[in-house]
Amino acid sequence: MCRWLAYLGEPLRPSTIVLDAKHSIVAQSLNSPLGAETVNGDGFGFGWYPTGAPQGAEPALFHSIEPAWNDANLRELTRAITSPLFFTHVRAATAPPIQQTNCHPYRYENWMFMHNGAIAGWRELRRDLTMAIDPSLYPNVLGTTDSEVLFHLALTYGLRDDPINAIGRAIRTVETVGHDHGVQFPWQGTVAVSDGTTLWAFRYSSQGRTRSLFHSADIPAIRLMYPDQERLAAFGDNAKVVVSEPLNDLPGAFVEVPESSALILDMDGYRHQPFLVG
C-alpha cells in the first residue's frame, strides 16, 4: 500500500513534518512499521496550496518516481516554501506501473485527493468503474491507478458540493461492481481530499479492517503535556496533521481515527462522524 500525510493550519515549512519529524513521512517511506509494506519507495508526490493564494486557487503539485528518501528536489522544495495546507504521499505500487501520472496526490481545479489502499480485483473491475465516470471528466484521468478512478467517480457524484456523500457513493459503487464480479471485499483504504480550505479524511474498508490512520491532538493541549518540547514552537495553535502513522513517540500526541469514519478538519478544529455504517 502507501503512506500519506495532510497538514492544515498556520503557514508552515513542510520540511518540519515531511523531513524533520522523528517518524516523518520520508522516514516512513523507508521504514513503515504500521504499513502493509515496510518500504514505500515506488515514487511520491507533494501537493500544496501556496501561502496567500486566493480561495479557489489550484494547488501546486510535484511528483517523482524516485524514492522520497533519495530525492534532493523534495528537500529543496519543502524547505523553501510555506503552506497552510499540503499533502504528501509515498507509494508502494500494487499493480499499476511506476510512473509520474500514477503518483498521488491528484488534482482537479482547486481539489486535491490521495489514497492509501486498493480496489480488490482491480483488473476485472477497472472497465466498469472507469465507464461510470462522467464523460466530461474522463479526459482528466491520466494514469492507470484505482485511486485516480475513485477520485473521478467522487467528482462525478458531486464531490464539489458534498464531499462526504460523494466519496461514500464512489466507494459504494466500487463495492457494488466488485460484488457483481464475485469480489468479497472490494474496497480498502484511507482517503484525504481538500478544496484548499477544509480537509476531509476517511477510513473505511469493506472488511472492516482498514489501514492505520491518525490525527494530531490539539497543539495547545500537547504543549501542556510536554512543556519542554522545543520543537512544538514551530506549530501554530491551529496546526492539525492527519497521517498514516504517528510522527513521533509522544504519548497522547496522536489519536487514532476510528474505523468507518469521516474526519472533517478546518480552522475550527476536528469533527468525526460515522461513514458508510450499516
Rank of each mutant, 00 (worst) to 15 (best):
M1V: 05
R3M: 08
L5P: 00
P11W: 05
L12T: 11
T16H: 05
I17K: 00
V18S: 04
S24R: 03
I25M: 05
Q28G: 01
S29R: 06
N31Q: 13
S32C: 13
A36T: 10
A36E: 08
E37V: 13
E37D: 14
E37K: 14
V39N: 07
N40R: 10
G41A: 15
G43S: 13
G43T: 14
T51H: 12
P59D: 08
P59S: 11
A60E: 15
L61Y: 14
L61Q: 09
F62R: 15
E66H: 11
N70G: 12
N73S: 10
N73Q: 07
L74Y: 09
R75H: 10
R79A: 10
A80I: 09
A80S: 15
I81S: 08
F87H: 06
T88N: 06
H89I: 08
V90Q: 03
R91V: 09
P96R: 12
P96N: 13
P96H: 15
P96V: 08
I98Y: 08
I98D: 10
Q100F: 04
C103L: 07
H104L: 13
P105Q: 12
R107C: 13
Y108M: 12
E109R: 15
M114L: 15
M114I: 12
A120V: 11
E124A: 14
E124L: 13
E124V: 14
R126E: 15
R127F: 12
R127M: 11
D128L: 13
T130F: 14
T130V: 12
A132L: 14
I133W: 09
S136V: 11
Y138V: 09
P139H: 10
P139Y: 08
V141I: 15
G143M: 10
G143T: 10
T144N: 13
V149H: 05
F151L: 07
F151V: 09
F151H: 05
L155D: 03
T156W: 06
L159I: 05
R160A: 12
D161Y: 07
R169K: 15
T173Y: 05
T173W: 05
V174M: 05
E175K: 09
V177H: 03
G178S: 06
G178I: 02
H179R: 15
H179Q: 14
D180R: 15
H181I: 11
V183D: 02
V183K: 02
F185Q: 08
F185C: 05
Q188N: 06
G189S: 04
T190P: 00
T190W: 00
V191Q: 00
W200M: 01
R203W: 01
Y204A: 01
Q207G: 06
Q207V: 07
L213W: 00
H215C: 02
S216D: 01
S216W: 00
A217H: 02
D218Q: 03
R223T: 01
R223V: 00
Y226A: 00
R231Y: 07
L232R: 02
A233R: 10
A234N: 06
A234L: 07
V241F: 08
V241D: 00
V241N: 01
V242K: 00
S244M: 03
E245Q: 07
E245L: 04
E245I: 03
P246I: 01
N248L: 02
L250V: 03
P251M: 01
F254G: 00
V255I: 13
M267A: 14
D268L: 13
D268N: 14
G269W: 05
L276N: 03
V277F: 06
